[in-house]
Structure formats: structure tokens, C-alpha cells
Design a protein around this nucleic acid. Structure first.
Lengths: 360, 360
DNA sequence: GCAAAAATTTGAATCGATCCAACGAAAGTG
DNA sequence: CACTTTCGTTGGATCGATTCAAATTTTTGC
């Protein structure tokens, strides 16, 4: 009795509407999904019933199961969610992804997690049609986790040679070369490299062994590009210090301390990201080292901030937004193939690079 | 025959695994969702079957329907998706939302659309437990659309007095006052206001009538705060030009052209957003008008960019990230109540404001 | 060795919709 | 008037899982 009078809190379902309007659930469904095929009068009746009962409209959860397609693409990373809104590189990339999604009306689901276990769960339970992977750290693990979902996915910036995963990236060797050649042509002969990670969880000066066994081949390739080109200019590349940073302030500054403690400090710094390069600019400025008069700095990425920092940064620009657009389209128009795309990079010369001191 | 030998492309379901392993659905399900309750040996057998058949794990689509909870919060706006990554205000807000979501492991689904029809569809079909609404333009419409989903939602920056919707915002009147008092105390007596929208689709000088009938009461309140405070300093507020911008470059510059065409141009500009204030800084600089020597500018919002622009902007800072965090928590720990929260603002004095010319 | 208790497993019901083959009624045709 | 079309409606099957009361098996206690 009580339960009857009380009225259950259960949300209204389509079936309730159908019963109230005295039609079958098939017809009730049609009223919402294909209104044109149901008779005017019936349609009105069903809509009235829906209104009266306070029906919220067909629940997407139910629809989804039947339809199979979510119409959203998942963007995953091992960083915290705020990475998508803080990091300049990620932001431009997301803008590119957004553009492609907007064009087709698809949504974006951001997937991330504090710890490994939660990340696995979040990837397993993400309601998406496919994934775009930001492989910053823990790339291989992220790929492995995602592969288990058996959904289409594309890795960004993976820098691994696994041919079984689709990826979009840039020609890192060519980019490295561009940066190195630019500085060498300006007359520089004493270099230092502020590198990104070769593998997880380590910073400091890098040994050839670590380069050889690099997990992140993107990092390795940039270095290869640097060194190949430098040696063409007669630089003894064995003497070029390569400091592995974590792409943040602390490790970059530690690297600079190490590098400039040398008896023969470099006149040119090759930074593997604009982030690191800009941190370097700041550190050099604080130490009273003028850029580019005393030291030149060249970054990598081409984030918008690089154009407005002080001094504006010479950098190797990646087509970041284009990578994002392509990645999104790869998921949206997935054709079942695995493809690796490599896009070109471009040297953007700004004010952070110039001839070495004492050159005239 | 053919169809039998061919083998259907149909993805593997849990039921297939159960059959292959010779157990019931129930047990197969338990192997994945509560492995500890199934006997070691059976568990191994089921897992082996899953492996053999290439099962991707329980499909979240199915689970979702049963569980009811998506564990994701939708963030919706009428702007294009890239707004979330481009706009400084939105980014800080999203960082706050992200923080709260990360803490509980919830995901974020970005919802937006080019046109009204698609927006309605995207909101209706978003797989989320609730919405946070960025009511920039078309706020009332967005609220209406969302209300139909009958899910918890919170409006940000709504600036409307509808007490039936939860909202989080700041005390705009107080903020307006803070900005106006600061300038008045510096000695300014000739003001101009660069306003945000009072209603959709219009820019230009604002009539009292438009203010009275404002849809966006946040805009109205800021203006009220400005004017109330100015009149306390003896300023004839009827003579203060109020130019409605669209919070973008073009309309801001048009506004400045109008304002500075006057015989008695202002010595102080009250801008209702940092975005507009920074555009103003740029325009003034291009015209050779020195800030703050010739003209002072005070913004509103307190976005990070305001601290690093040239000159650094004096502004009324909102606790943007905090608003985001609270909004997210309101959805995550929804308790069925409708609540409107108003947070405080703070004047941040930087270099864009100073005494009026000829004051000493 | 047997009953009671504990641990596993089963299979039907459920979540909320959409799809579709079949059917009934109204309209059109010769 | 019988016969096909056309139009709308019906109700069962399905999407892929989870849940839970009941059935079964294994353990434990004496």
C-alpha cells in the first residue's frame, strides 16, 4: 500500500509514456526519433503524455547501447587533466582536434588519471569511438592499455617504432638538423643540448648508452639530427653535453647549472621544446647572460608563446594544430588501417639566435 | 553454409566468452567485475577463453546502461569547442574543474556545437552525470536545453536571476565598485566603460533602456557597481559613455574609436573583462597614448595573461579556478538542491592604472 | 559419515532504448 | 467489389552488460 501511494522515484522511461498514451513502445520511440512517420494525432498524444509525466526525452544510455556509436573521441594522457588547458603545446593540439570535431559535431572526452590503476579503468570505461593518445610520459603503457579496448586510436608524439600503432608526428631528425644548421651557420661551435626524456624517470647528463636504448625515439631522433648536422660543421659531438630534463622549470635550471659550470660554456643551446627553451631564456636573463649576444637559444615545437617571449624564440615549428586535426579525422573517418604519418617542420628564426660573441 | 564458414565480424561479447569457457553469463561477468569471488580455476579458464577469442573486456556501453552512472561531467557552451583551449578565462576555469574531476577520477566531456540544432542534439545525447554551463552567449537558451535533460547542472557566469537554476558567480556589483573606487581615488573624473553584452547580438553605445532590460545581469551589475561608486565621487554618470563590446578585438577597437572621438576623452577606462582591457591596451599603445600616464585601464577577471601583458593590468580578480572547482563538486556530489553561490572578488593593482595626467 | 555452514555458480530479470517483420486499416485501381 | 498499395502501428528481438535469489557444490564440525 505504502509503496503504491508513495510513488516510486524511478525515472520515467519511454515505456511509461507509451503506456500512458496508450500506444506501443515502438510508436512512442518513433515519436522522438522519427516523428514524421507517426500520425499527427498520435504524436500529439504521446508528446502530451511525455509532458504530463515529466519525461526527459529518450535516455542516451539506452540509445547508445543499441546504436553502438558514441560520437565522441577520447583524448588520453598520463598527465593530470589540467595538462590539456595549461600546456601550450597541448592547447594548440587540442584546438586542432576541436576544429575537426566541431566540423562533424563530435564531442571530446578527456581521459586521464592520477595513478596507473585509475588510468586503466578510465580508459577501459571511456565512452568513446576511439582515442587520441598524448604520449608524454608512460607512452608505451598508455598504448598498451588503449590497445586492449580494440578501438581505433592514434598516438601523438609517440616516438616509438611500433608499426602496429597508428601515429602522427613530425620528422624529428630533420627538425634537429634545421636547428643545428641554423646555429652552426651563424658561426657557433660550442653547443649544449637541453633534451627531453629518453626514457622515464631520470634526468641529468646523458650517456651514449642511454641514447642507444631510448624508449622515446622522438627525443633520440632530435638529438641525432642535432649531432649529425653539427658534425658536418666539424663540431666534436662527443663533447657536446646533453642534459635530460623533464620539460619543466626545475630540471631545466638544474641542467643549465651543470652546463654552465663548465670551463668552456656553450655559446648556443639546442632545446628540445619551447617550454625548456623559454625556461632557459629566463635562467640566462636572471644570470645576466644576454640572449642572443652571449648565448643563442633555439627551441622546438613552435608554440604561440614562443613568439611573444623575451626575446622572441627561434624555434623549429611543428604543424601542431594540423597534427591534431589529422589525428581527429583519423578516428572520425576510421578505415581500419594502421598508418604512420610524418609531417614536416619549419625553422622559424626570431631574436633568440645570433652570431656567437666576438664574431664581429 | 557460406555465412557459417565465413564467421561474422560481430564483436565478441561476454556471452561468447561464457559459452566458450562453459560457464554462465553471471560467472563470466564476475570474472571481470569481481574476480575475487570466483574460484581460481574457473577464473583462469574464463580469462583464457577471453584471450583466445580476443575479447576486449566488458563493453562500457553495456555496463553503463545497468549502472546508470557515467562518471563524467559535461561542460557545455555555445562557443566552438576550441573556446575551451583558447580563451584565458575558460582555461583557468577548466583547470579548476579538472582538479576536482581528477580528485575523484571523473572524466570531462566537452559539449558544444556550431548551430543551435546540433547543440540541442549534443546536449540531449551527451553521456554525462551532469552539466556545467558556460553561459557566454545564448545563456538562457543553453539553460533551457539543459534543463530538459533533467540532470544536475550549474551555470557559470550566468548573470540571470532565475532562482530555479544553480549558479556560481561573483559579486559583480562589488567588483565594479572596487574598480571604480580605485580609479576615482587616484583622481580620475572622466571615465568610459567598455562593457560586455547586455543581451545578444548588439554592440555600440548603450542606452539606459538597454541596461534596464539586460538579459545578462552580470554585465548590468558590473555597470551598476561602476556607476554607483563613481557617483559617490561626484561624477555625472549620465555622461559616462558605455560601449557594449562582444569581448573581442574588433568591437573593442570600434568602441575605443567611438569613445576617443569625443571632445573630452576619458582619462580612465573601466573594462568589463581582461580580454577587452588588453585589447584596449594594445589599441592605446598603437595610438601613442601612454598607459597609465595618459589613460588608466582597469580590467575584470584576473586571468593570468593580465599579469604579464604590457603594462601589467590592474584588474578585479575573480577566483576563477575556485569557481570551477566548486561547480564540478556541485555536480559530483549532487544533493538535489538548487543553490546560488556568490564568491568575492579582489582588486589587483598593477601598472595599468595611475593618477590622471596633470595631477602632479 | 552426515548435517549445517560457507563458498560458488546459475540463469532469469533488468537497465532504456531502437529496429524490423508482420499486421490492420484506409486509400487507390480496374 | 475484390485486389493491390500505402500508411501506421504493434510487439518481439536485440544491443551488452550487471545483479540477485535460488540452486549447487565444497568445507567444516562433530
Amino acid at each position: 500500500m505504502a509503496s503504491l501511494t508513495e510513488g516510486s522515484r524511478r525515472p520515467i522511461r519511454l515505456a511509461d509514456i507509451a503506456k500512458a498514451a496508450g500506444v506501443s513502445h515502438g510508436t512512442a520511440s518513433n515519436v522522438f526519433s522519427r516523428p514524421e512517420i507517426v500520425r499527427e494525432e498520435v504524436r500529439a498524444r504521446v508528446k502530451a503524455a511525455a509532458e504530463a509525466l515529466g519525461y526527459a526525452g529518450p535516455d542516451p544510455k539506452g540509445r547508445l547501447l543499441r546504436a553502438g556509436k558514441v560520437n565522441a573521441i577520447g583524448v588520453a594522457t598520463t598527465e593530470p587533466l589540467s595538462y590539456f588547458f595549461d600546456d601550450p603545446f597541448a592547447r594548440v593540439m587540442m584546438a586542432g582536434i576541436s576544429e575537426a570535431c566541431d566540423a562533424t559535431g563530435a564531442g571530446i572526452a578527456l581521459v586521464s588519471a592520477g595513478n596507473e590503476e585509475k588510468l586503466a579503468w578510465n580508459i577501459q570505461s571511456a565512452l568513446v569511438d576511439g582515442f587520441i593518445l598524448f604520449c608524454i610520459e608512460g607512452g608505451p603503457r598508455l598504448v598498451e592499455l588503449t590497445r586492449e579496448r580494440k578501438l581505433p586510436f592514434v598516438a601523438l608524439e609517440l616516438g616509438s617504432q611500433d608499426d602496429t600503432v597508428s601515429a602522427i608526428g613530425v620528422d624529428n631528425v630533420a627538425g634537429g638538423r634545421l636547428a643545428a644548421r641554423h646555429l652552426a651557420e651563424l658561426g657557433h661551435r660550442r653547443f649544449a643540448v637541453l633534451s627531453l626524456a629518453f626514457a622515464d624517470d631520470s634526468t641529468g647528463l646523458v650517456s651514449p648508452e642511454r641514447v642507444r636504448t631510448a624508449v622515446y625515439t622522438g627525443t633520440r631522433d632530435r638529438l641525432l639530427g642535432y649531432l649529425e648536422e653539427l658534425s658536418r660543421f666539424g663540431v666534436d659531438t662527443a663533447k657536446v653535453p646533453v642534459y635530460e630534463t623533464e620539460n619543466d622549470e626545475a630540471s631545466t635550471k638544474a641542467g643549465l647549472e651543470t652546463i654552465f659550470a663548465s670551463a668552456e660554456p656553450p655559446t648556443a643551446i639546442l632545446a628540445m621544446s619551447d617550454r625548456v627553451a623559454m625556461e632557459a631564456l629566463e635562467w640566462l636573463n636572471a644570470r645576466g647572460i644576454a640572449v642572443p649576444r652571449d648565448v643563442s637559444v633555439v627551441g622546438f615545437d613552435g608554440v604561440p608563446e614562443a613568439a611573444i617571449c623575451d626575446p622572441p624564440l627561434t624555434t623549429v615549428a611543428q604543424p601542431i594544430a594540423e597534427i591534431g586535426r589529422r589525428a581527429a579525422r583519423r578516428i572520425l573517418d576510421f578505415d581500419g588501417t594502421v598508418r604512420r604519418e610524418t609531417l614536416g617542420v619549419e625553422l622559424v628564426v626570431r631574436a633568440s639566435s645570433g652570431p656567437p660573441p666576438g664574431t664581429g
